[in-house]
Nucleic acid binder design. Structure first.
Length: 614
DNA sequence: GTAAGTGACTCAGAAAATTAGGC
DNA sequence: AGCCTAATTTTCTGAGTCACTTA
């Protein structure tokens, strides 16, 4: 194997804006200025500073590291005496300048990016050119751990070539270090690992790697193996379920815990849940579930609330009614109650279990089987079962087929608890859409009343459409903003231009809203009620369409479909289905997914996710 | 044996960048 | 018809899993 090493992010350029401390402006060293600027760039309503419960931890960790960089005896000592407003307004204005970039400037940036891609983005593996994934070393910055991370806000240091180890074939030449006066830390020739470059990050002291891209044959093979294992599990799943169902009433406490955990992993797609340290966010999986994560309902004998923070501090929250799972469910419930009995709320439910025991148990049933394979298997199986038949799709248009696919995809995402948070902007859009539907309904009622009046020959009180003055104003503002943008030279002028652009957009938005308010009205009152009737029909259709989009959007707003598509559902199920229903694959797999799954593209239409023969 | 540590890989949502399609 | 926004796609890097090593 041969490659060009790694690319480094650009060196920090000093801006020399002072930081206000205790009412006075303080000039910072280059290193301190860089760190202070990272802080100033953080959004006040973001996940770091916007969380009143955890922001103090962020600030404390930040300040500890910031003081180290300022040096002993520096006058900046107390976080609360720092006034960020000056530096913050500088960083916001920098963002505005960036947004005013002309097409030429954007093209320049793009060309530079392509040059880097050409230099570092390819590796020669066994005589074949392969794409490299993340060939740029991570930027320094403030550590943004997910959820309530004890180390959030600490300074993540810049990585220098001396900290890197490179891995490539014996026969290949050592790549040239891209930073003058520096050299690689170490060089090795180990064909048993897939990484090209590695370094250790200073926050969690975790190893980071530069590896080949997802579309490379190496990653493709391992992906194919993963789905191969999942389909193999399909051949064992009956026996495995019989096994854990039988063991739910075992005399051995360990066996009963194992069986109960297996039920949760199989039915609720829980991760195995390894131990976590004091310096990590408090998240759990199956083996690390604690008594406090189960709430036994007072209203129902058989319903239990299960709530915990899983990977990435994503909340798992479901009420499980064990009566829905028949006799097996009731046995599981009895076990969980029993495991929780007499324990404090912070004690482990499965004190006899850990991931390696659980995996060892699985390996004894099927070679190579581990807990995570259940997520892959159940995701793939669910997709295959939920996708509608070609017969049902026969008369539908492509967009409707895509909706049907997403419906099945959503079932999988819900199973795997793949979530996304609704941003303020998204919620705003959703609310606006809701308002739009309400407005359309109101307009339809007015049209119906209008029709009656015209039929009765009483047109005196029928409203007509007026010109919206705001439209012209918005147009004028647009012209002005464009002029500003084209003539802007200095940063100040550029900021002004960006602001003017934002203003005219706001104005246009308001104008559109005004126009929309009377979109149903006629310029002149029509004498023929049929004209009104036609508009009522149009409005009915508009309402139906908008209600459907609203429904889709709000159903999907907190569900992330992408994760299961990229990592869990065997792509051959999707490819075969698309062929059966005659839907072009690019309607469901974007470019990178088609590249990543290039090995799956040739399956025949009748391909099924099945256990292999023998 | 066994438990603790850790290296290497997959999987995760947020944020940035790009694209498509609605006005 | 083309501009602009909203939605989708890609990038980024943190957070898991699991096998293997070490004491």
């Amino acid at each position: 194997m041969e490659h060009a090493g790694a690319s480094f992010p650009p060196e920090y350029v000093q801006h020399r804006m002072p930081l206000t401390y205790d009412g006075e402006e303080v000039q910072l060293s280059k290193a301190a200025e860089e760190v202070a600027t990272w802080y100033a760039e953080l959004p006040l309503d973001g996940p770091q500073l916007g969380d009143p419960e955890w922001a103090p931890t962020f600030n404390k960790n930040f300040m500890t590291d910031f003081k180290k960089i300022l040096g002993k005896g520096h006058r900046i000592k107390d976080f609360n005496k720092i006034d960020w407003s000056g530096l913050r307004s500088y960083t916001t204005s920098k963002k505005l300048v960036k947004r005013s970039a002309t097409d030429e400037e954007k093209a320049e940036v793009k060309a530079e990016k392509q040059a880097t891609q050409a230099q570092f983005g390819l590796a020669l593996v066994d005589g074949h050119l392969e794409k490299v994934g993340n060939f740029t070393i991570e930027l320094p910055g403030l550590f943004r751990g997910r959820g309530k991370h004890p180390k959030t806000g600490k300074v993540k240091q810049r990585v220098l070539p001396e900290q890197l180890s490179l891995n490539f074939g014996e026969e290949a030449a050592v790549p040239i270090c891209p930073i003058d006066g520096h050299g690689w830390g170490a060089v090795q020739h180990d064909p048993s690992v897939t990484w090209l470059v590695t370094w250790r990050e200073n926050i969690m002291e975790a190893n980071k790697y530069v590896m080949l891209a997802a579309m490379s044959s190496l990653k493709g093979k391992s992906d194919r193996d993963k789905y191969g294992k999942a389909s193999k599990l399909k051949g064992y799943i009956g026996a495995i379920r019989d096994n854990y169902r039988g063991n739910l009433q075992s005399r051995s406490g360990e066996e009963r815990q194992m069986a109960t955990a297996m039920w949760l992993i199989d039915i609720y797609a829980l991760r195995v849940g390894g131990e976590k340290g004091e310096d990590e966010a408090d998240t759990v999986g199956c083996c690390s579930l604690r008594v406090e994560h189960f709430t036994f309902s007072t209203q129902s004998e058989t319903a239990v609330d299960l709530e915990f923070l899983g990977k990435d501090s994503m909340r798992f929250k479901q009420t499980i009614d064990f009566a829905n799972y028949g006799n097996v469910g009731l046995k599981v419930l009895r076990n969980i109650k029993d495991f929780c009995k007499g324990k404090r709320k912070n004690e482990d439910v499965f004190e006899f279990l850990n991931p390696s025991m659980l995996n060892a148990h699985l390996q004894s049933i099927m070679p190579g089987l581990t807990a995570k394979v259940f997520r892959t298997y159940n995701a793939s199986e669910t997709l295959q079962n939920e996708l509608p038949s070609a017969e049902d799709m026969r008369r539908l248009q492509d967009p409707e087929k895509v909706v049907a696919y997403n419906e099945a995809n959503r079932k999988v995402a819900i199973l795997c608890n793949h979530q996304k948070t609704v941003s303020a902007a998204q919620q705003e859009g959703l609310d606006a859409l809701q308002g739009k539907v309400a407005m359309l309904k109101k307009q339809k009622r007015e049209l119906q009343a209008m029709k009656k009046k015209i039929e009765a020959g009483d047109t005196s009180s029928v409203r007509t459409a007026n010109d919206v003055a705001l439209v012209a104003r918005a147009e004028a503002a647009k012209a002005k903003a464009e002029k500003l943008r084209n003539s802007a030279k200095t940063d100040e002028q550029r900021i002004k231009a960006t602001k003017a652009t934002e203003e005219w957009r706001e104005l246009r938005k308001r104008a559109a809203a005004e126009k929309f308010k009377q979109a149903h009205l006629f310029k002149n009152v029509p004498s023929d009620p049929k004209k009104v009737q036609a508009r009522i029909v149009t409005w009915t259709e508009k309402i139906r369409k908008q209600e459907l989009t609203l429904q889709n959007k709000s159903d999907n707003k907190e569900v992330a479909l992408g994760t299961s598509k990229i990592n869990y559902m065997d792509p051959r199920i999707t490819v075969a289905w698309c062929k059966r229903v005659e839907l072009p694959i690019e309607r469901v797999f974007a470019r990178t997914l088609r590249d990543k799954f290039n090995w799956a593209m040739a399956v025949p239409p009748d391909w099924r996710f099945e256990a292999p023969d023998n």
